[in-house]
Design a protein around this nucleic acid. Structure first.
Lengths: 249, 249
DNA sequence: CGAATACTTGAGTGGGGTCAACGCAAGTGG
DNA sequence: CCACTTGCGTTGACCCCACTCAAGTATTCG
């Protein structure tokens, strides 16, 4: 959970009490095997989670039979907050590689929000960033020119992993198959293959054995038209006052 | 504001105090002329809003110059909750026709959540439904077959408008141009035109003068592969216990 | 070592994009 | 009242991006 505490602390220092309350709420651990479903479409959500290790995907099967990947929770991300007031899941959450999650029952999160509203707001903030990512994916699957889409996804994953210290320079674990990539950006796996070859041919990336190496970040960023604004990272040029001063709530 | 009170009341009865607190928080009115920007990308969000009349669009200009519409807040919808903990807007919000919004400063919403957590949770719920809509739009712009996309958007708008009583049978105001429709579903305006003609030719819809008439709901729904699960409507088959009993928070 | 899965490559095709022109209605101003 | 403009919708011609089908090649795994 230290990963999560550190991530939340970037926006407002957590008191020892808040850290304790947070850890007590998310006291359940669950290990997911590769491909295991954490929760399926139409099931009632029973908990809020944070991913500690591995990688998850949100997915939905369309009436045409196609699969659409809706999002990729990474370690440190809070997920299912989106559903904790809703009756049923509108999509499934599935583990890519072996993953570890920490779970909190909804009642614990409601209590946490009631008794420590500032901590609740920080958890919400994390969920809000994911919503901004959803919106960016609409643009990525929509009007963004074809070849840029894949580059954009790579830029996003790299930037998000770097935020939680899970990159090694410009290299990082990337456990998606070409079919997965296609379902994430709304293209066929075969076309993803050809686009990958192009990115490789232009010496922008190397991608073998589940590991992605970015060889030319600036060129990749330009090809993607990637602007990290939507990730709402903590940056040095943001307003100097704390996001959530203690007196705010 | 009665529209909003009624909408929220569907999920848990509001006490007279909660209704008063809600109305006091959203005490500012603002009228937007057609095409007027409520808030632009990169600006710091200053308020939470609910739309009372008209229609808004969330949009983003991509590096390619293309415009992508990310969402369509309708009357009764809470918006910008998504941004009330974030430093800058990652997209713009613009009025389609003349629209009226009610605004609450962030401090009022933080206070509301602190002092009336159940009311805060109901507002959050509305935001969560919008997130589910974002996810569905990813699928709509992504892997959904072409002709279904337009039909799906029409089904969604109809269903959401019907929820707040803004439909007249199967007829409703629909102030989007074909260019807007294209930017919403990730297609060119010209192709939208041809798809519209097809839907008209099959006697599924009539669409003139900013008004949409659905002529054959079941056929349109089938063409779209539309399943309203993601709208998280209040339905008769949901769990009988109240979503947010008073003792929950 | 076979079986399954993932990746690669080629050939053929069609959906949807772009460009360009035109129709039509609603303003607008002389 | 008419000439001009502006915005939106419609239609045709052309073409390319990306999909599908199909076959072949690693690579992993029981």
């Amino acid at each position: 959970m230290d990963l999560v505490v550190e991530k939340l602390s970037r926006h407002a220092a957590l008191s020892p009490t808040e850290i304790r309350v947070l850890k007590e709420a998310f006291d359940t651990r669950r290990v997911l095997e590769p491909g295991e479903t954490l929760i399926a479409e139409r099931e009632p959500p029973r908990f809020v989670g944070v991913l500690l290790e591995g990688m998850l995907r949100r997915e939905k099967i369309l009436s045409s039979g196609h699969r659409q990947i809706l999002g990729l929770p990474l370690p440190g991300d809070v997920f299912d907050l989106h559903g904790f007031l809703l009756e049923r899941m509108d999509h499934s959450i599935i583990a890519f590689p072996r993953s570890v999650v920490a779970l909190a029952p909804h009642s614990a999160v409601l209590e946490l929000n009631r008794d420590h509203p500032r901590l609740g707001a920080l958890l919400w903030r994390d969920g809000l960033v994911e919503n901004a990512i959803f919106r960016e994916w609409i643009a990525n699957c929509g009007h963004r020119p074809g070849p840029s889409r894949l580059a954009h996804l790579i830029c996003e994953i790299y930037t998000r992993l770097a935020q939680v210290g899970l990159t090694d320079g410009l290299s990082f674990a990337f456990p998606l198959s070409q079919a997965d990539l296609g379902d994430a950006i709304g293209q066929s796996a075969i076309h993803v293959n050809r686009t990958l070859q192009r990115l490789r041919g232009e010496n922008l990336i190397r991608f073998i054995g589940g590991r992605m190496d970015i060889l030319d970040w600036e060129a990749l960023r330009a090809a993607a038209g990637f602007d990290p604004l939507y990730l709402h990272l903590v940056s040095t040029d943001r307003p100097t006052e704390a996001l959530l001063p203690l007196e705010a709530v």
